[in-house]
Nucleic acid binder design. Structure first.
Lengths: 304, 304
DNA sequence: CGCTCATTTTGTCCAGGACAAATCTGGTAA
DNA sequence: TTACCAGATTTGTCCTGGACAAAATGAGCG
């Protein structure tokens, strides 16, 4: 595999791959006739493991050591955390979650879809989003990070969950006056869509007028869209996998682009790592979004 | 804007930006105290124009000339093409398309959604996908390329269309035995989802068992998914915007990864630029997919 | 007019140096 | 013990300038 193919499959940039090789001696690709790097499949697999652990918070300097210790440091503690989290919830919810996770592991898209739809019917959209979906995202994310779930299984889960959430949102009645107007999207590097759909579901349930642009809108276009829609609030979603160091500068840059009366909300797990900043509101948890909506309404009494 | 921000907003890679500066003298960013490039907003806007024209097939060497000639070479011929295409269809379909395009230009998400749903009700899913959606994608793409539609307006369109198509697909009855099994996805650089949804709708209507992984699945994971799902066919979608030179090598690489009995289909506008290759089937148009499905069934009589 | 071959264009690759921001470490005070 | 702060280290990203292969273009010829 060429360096471009490795970047595509692992998500690690070319510059980073080259500097790792220079500094740590790994990866150590062979070269073709022209001196260009060719990565063996085994090293690509190892790079994927390293990427997973880095998303968990480990630093690369510690991960280029022996492979055995990595696997130990990886699976052992993460399993404990997940097991305790699973055990803590107990009861019928935990059973439903287990059934859903099982159908992910067996790649049974139809069963997965049905289990999700069933859970939503029983709990209603509000309860489904706040309990089941949130818990599943954490469980799937953790299982992926410790290598129990393949990338394609996560895609399968995302696709089915997306279908269920979109169907539910489409069937909601839209209040006509609808205030505030909320513009939902993510920045160009962030492609996780479930956080957006969860927020859209909850805020629409609370009577806000949500417009979603989907994922990966350039900052300049977010401003244009906010102006065109006369949005009261721009809400961005950042997943846990998004490089934390970039969130602060991105939020500041967008804040400077947006008109002052437009509120800027940052949601998703990534919001935990957002440094406090004027005019930017961090909403790491779903409940925070609902609370922020109530606050906004206190400060903006109906005017028509 | 830093070079990273420009890459994010224009989709032009850092390496390419630097080599253009070296070769053509444009862009000509200023430098900060540390010698790093800082791009003025005007140059970023020009880069966006250049990118649009390159997606149309122009080469960068011709585009770094004067700004006036570019705009002329851009808008004049493209408008003609679009006008003739619009006029050629004539009748009630053209009127519906015009209404939809108008609601995109006025950023009226609710009206857009309603117009799309209405068109689908009248035509049925099959006719809607083959006529309206295909024509809209071309019209929106062309309007975007000649600068009449902003990126965020295209996002708005994609989001609403996605909602309508997903809702329609979800309401289709799924034939239980369901052959062949088709795995739908795109490669990591390709994020356009509408092509996938259109294919999923048509193939499901024809009785195939479709499983979609959504967009941007790494090649290794496509293989794993195909094995896990025991897929008969892997279908990839490439949009017109995808760099044409990469499609051939990508298809060949995936072909080598997949088991021989699994067919590999390449759909979307990008398939036009796919060089003929053994074991890879190019399906540039939607009708081709339906025809290929019939052919597959001829060659694989029901065995259970 | 159609086909082959030379030439130009263009994206991507490489090396190795540099720096700023984030993170870790150790010491000190409450 | 815990809380906090300054210094050391880690790490991603940026820089320059040279090189090559694949694709696109254009010339030449049957």
């Amino acid at each position: 595999m060429t360096i471009s193919a490795v970047e595509r499959d692992t998500g690690i940039g070319k510059e980073t791959l080259r500097v790792w090789e220079r500094r740590y001696g790994f990866p150590a690709p062979s070269r073709d006739a022209h001196g260009e790097r060719l990565y063996p499949a085994a090293q690509v697999e190892r790079l994927r493991q390293i990427k997973r652990l880095m998303d968990l918070g480990f630093r690369p300097g510690r991960l280029v050591g022996a492979s055995d210790e990595e696997l130990a440091a990886l699976s052992a503690p993460a399993t404990t955390v997940a097991a305790s989290a699973g055990a803590a919830s107990g009861g019928p919810l935990a059973a439903a979650l287990e059934r859903i996770l099982a159908s992910i592991r067996t790649h049974d898209a139809a069963a997965l879809r049905q289990a999700l739809a069933q859970a939503m019917m029983r709990q209603g959209l509000h309860g489904f989003v706040r309990e089941t979906v949130a818990a599943l995202n954490v469980a799937v994310g953790e299982a992926w990070m410790r290598g129990e779930i393949e990338v394609f299984e996560e895609h399968l889960y995302t696709e089915q969950m997306q279908a269920v959430l979109r169907q539910a949102i489409a069937s909601l009645p839209r209040p006509q006056p609808g205030r505030p107007r909320v513009l939902l999207t993510t920045v160009p590097e962030e492609q996780h869509v479930l956080g957006l759909l969860m927020a859209e579901a909850l805020l629409t349930l609370e009577g806000a007028a949500c417009t979603s642009l989907g994922t990966q809108t350039p900052l300049l276009d977010i401003r244009r869209a906010a102006e065109a829609q006369r949005a009261d609030i721009v809400a961005l979603s950042f997943s846990a996998a998004f490089p934390g160091r970039q969130i602060g500068p991105l939020a500041a840059q967008l804040r400077a682009l947006l008109p002052a009366p437009v509120a800027l909300w940052i949601g998703g797990s990534g919001a935990e790592r957002l440094p406090p900043s004027a005019g930017v509101r961090a909403l790491p948890r779903l409940d925070d979004a609902v609370a922020a909506l109530a606050e906004w309404r206190d400060g903006h009494p109906a005017r028509d």
